[in-house]
């Protein structure tokens, strides 16, 4: 406020008025808030949290299409001794970690590339998003065609390059099936990381680059000392999001291998679905689902805690 000579002037009246209005509304605010969010809360509880509660309860039962039998906590003993559990867990971890790491690397490097200035940049940015926009089922079918031993172009090109001698059945060999799907998943999902990191690059303060240049920093120094630290929050968030989404990503594995061959490429969501709707073992399916949920919950909490702590100490 401007200070004038000769006595104090009262503060402008509109400030008081505004404060008064806001205070009077505090109580109304509570009621309004409830009304505004009520519909979504009702939907959320009826459609999401109540079914989730049911899933937790189902884990204590042996449920088939015709009968329901209470087994209690003994079911969890059976779950932890289940012959598929180690494989599913390992597959899920390999699947998620490899996909997330490569989406990070590819997303960051393509964002850096698309952040350079060159004619046709807008078009290039639009084209790079396309895989992410393609419906998952269709992406799965197209990749099945690419991997196909007779019709697929992958085998053909690899043979021309002399890398393989005979067409290989990428999706029906137990050693390669999961990795073939992983490759497609990286292709399908990395544009999301590109989008996030492109947005992140826009908010890196330009003065920092200038300051680094004055200090004599080269391109790599600028990248590790300015770009990466400034983008830390967005990288942290993107990694967590892609981790959760990939861990729960159902369509690609289901469409491309169906968990096969011989159930060797199942991950949590596909195995849960198989148990429930191919074998109608609803109880066991619920147990695997709950395990999936609890793992992600614990992982996310730990991740958020450690990354926050690191940010505070910076």
């Amino acid at each position: 406020m401007k200070k004038e000579r000769g006595g104090s002037i009262p503060p402008p009246t509109f400030v008081m008025k505004r404060k008064d209005v806001m205070k009077r509304n505090r109580k109304k605010e509570w009621i309004a808030g409830c009304f505004f969010i009520l519909p979504s809360l009702v939907l959320l509880f009826v459609l999401v949290f109540y079914p989730l509660f049911l899933t937790f309860r189902y884990t204590l039962y042996d449920i088939s299409l015709t009968s329901t039998r209470y087994l209690g906590w003994a079911t969890y003993q059976r779950l932890f001794a289940h012959r598929m559990l180690p494989l599913i867990f390992r597959n899920s971890l390999v699947w998620t970690i490899v996909v997330v790491v490569f989406q990070f690397l590819l997303g960051l490097s393509s964002a850096l590339l698309l952040n350079r200035s060159f004619p046709g940049r807008g078009l290039a940015r639009g084209l790079v998003i396309l895989p992410w926009v393609m419906p998952g089922v269709i992406a799965g079918m197209v990749w099945r065609l690419i991997y196909d031993p007779q019709l697929g172009l992958l085998n053909h090109y690899l043979r021309q390059l002399g890398i393989i001698a005979q067409p290989f059945t990428w999706l029906s060999h137990p050693k390669t099936a999961l990795y073939a799907v992983i490759f497609s998943a990286i292709w399908k999902g990395f544009p999301f990381s590109t989008l996030m990191y492109l947005a992140g690059l826009q908010i890196v303060p330009q003065e920092l680059y200038e300051a680094a240049e004055i200090d004599g920093a080269g391109g790599w120094m600028k990248f590790t000392n300015v770009t990466l630290p400034s983008m830390r929050p967005i990288i942290t968030t993107t990694l967590l999001l892609t981790f959760i989404w990939t861990f729960n990503y159902f369509e690609l594995v289901y469409v491309m291998t169906g968990g096969g061959p011989a159930e060797k490429s199942h991950i949590f969501p596909t195995y849960v679905y198989d148990l429930a709707f191919k074998r109608f073992r609803f109880g066991l399916a619920s147990q695997f689902a709950v395990l999936d949920f609890l793992f992600l919950l614990v992982f996310s909490l730990l991740y958020i805690r450690t990354s926050f702590r690191r940010e505070k100490s910076l």
């Binding site: 729960n248 159902f250 689902a289 949920f293 992600l296 919950l297």
Partner: peptide
């Protein structure tokens, strides 16, 4: 809660919803 609802696979609630 809204964020939490993103944590479980849809396969986890499809069984009760189906029933």
């Amino acid at each position: 809660l809204i964020l939490l609802s993103q944590l479980f696979p849809l396969a986890a609630i499809i069984v009760p919803l189906y029933r």
